[in-house]
Write a protein that binds this DNA or RNA. Structure first.
Lengths: 217, 217
DNA sequence: CTCATAACTAACTAATTAGTACATTTCTAT
DNA sequence: ATAGAAATGTACTAATTAGTTAGTTATGAG
């Protein structure tokens, strides 16, 4: 019964803490991966920054690839976990879409780890996503929510017909993702600091405007 | 006089071919870097795929980092070299902008090496761009062209006021870049094949629409 | 022709780094 | 309390991999 995890029921003075150790390793590994990429990440470096040893990384995660996959899944889980609380049903289609776009913009901005893990995954041609059962299941929601809003808008005559929800999601993602993924090179090449709150607020507003105008009837 | 390069004037039966060797190494290295990232790329693998030996990589490029930087610069050079022939001056602002966006979309699509090198560079926080004198100089043109078109459009009353050319460039880049950079993960997660010509044509048209509507008066 | 230098080859090294062997401690169920 | 399993620490190994050493061959100027 190797799969039986000892739940942390009794939180008294325990010195062994498997869940905590795993969590600690995951956090440190995530930092290392997002900063250096999959191949650039060093297991020794991760080990040195945990409260535990390299041995435990292999004990819990098997090898580097599986540790990376775990971090990738964790990044997807984190970003999707925060996504439920929007309550868009009782808003007008326009307001709902606006809120969704603003939210996506902020969300990408607040989760650079997610953005960077996806970048890394694309460098590796998405080969780890293939192997993950979990990630597939985490993504239906966004497009469904979006489709609902869009169809409602079309029905009410405020959105034009003929757009597919997934395409809309594609464009929203593009604008919000790129803002985080390419900030380093863009900032350096065009010598424009995009990190300030004011600049980000302006960009967010522009992204919203772009999407709203795109779907407008 | 170590810097004196023997120009390939006399192209008779020569067995030594420094320029060709460098070009060959660069091509192979580019393939390796874009497929595996900076840290994932293997010098031995590059060497094995050239017509020459590992020794020559070090002979001409010094070390792995400088080889990578050379490839990065080459990717920027390639993409900027193709950019001159647009001739947007005698078009209406709308047509000119449309053409520029279409062109950017196609150009990113046709130069995945460029897109992927920029992705890799962002993973590494743009640290190599810092070290490159060349790349800085290659980027003024796009934004200038765009600004000219935009200002002309504002003057003629077809574009609204208050948009900065660099922001416009930011959004165009986002939409066109993401289309290439994130295709692997997006395709796999949403199980939608975006590689077909029809799908790409649709996306391109939508990107154009999005930008045109965004700037419309 | 010949000599200096640039272009090139093959075999080697030093360091890094993913992964392991083995011993020990802590916990849990009986 | 104790046996068996899970969790952990220390020291090691085997492979990989960036980079080099020590040379040979081609080329072009004089």
């Amino acid at each position: 019964m190797a799969e039986v995890k000892p739940k942390t029921k009794t939180k008294k003075t325990r010195q062994q803490d498997p869940e905590g150790t795993k969590r600690n390793i995951t956090e440190v590994a995530m930092r290392e991966f997002v900063n250096r990429g999959l191949s650039g990440a060093r297991i020794d470096e991760i080990a040195a920054n945990t409260n535990t040893s390299k041995r435990m990384i292999y004990y819990y995660f098997g090898d580097k690839d599986r540790l990376y996959l775990h971090c990738l899944e964790e990044a997807y889980r984190e970003i999707r976990d925060g996504e439920t609380a929007l309550k868009l049903d009782h808003l007008t289609p326009k307001d709902a879409l606006k809120k969704l776009v603003e939210y996506t913009f902020e969300h990408n901005n607040n989760h650079p780890n997610f953005v960077r893990m996806v970048m890394i995954e694309n460098i590796h041609h998405g080969s780890f996503i293939d192997r993950s059962d979990i990630i597939q299941k985490l993504n239906a929601t966004v497009v469904n929510d979006l489709e609902e809003i869009y169809l409602r808008g079309v029905e009410e005559g405020v959105f034009r017909k003929g757009i597919e929800a997934i395409d809309l999601h594609w464009h929203i993602s593009a604008l919000c993702f790129f803002n985080v993924s390419n900030r380093d090179t863009f900032t350096k090449i065009f010598e424009k600091n995009l990190n300030s709150d004011a600049e980000q607020a302006k960009l967010c507003q522009q992204v919203v405007a772009m999407i709203m105008r795109f779907v407008a009837a």
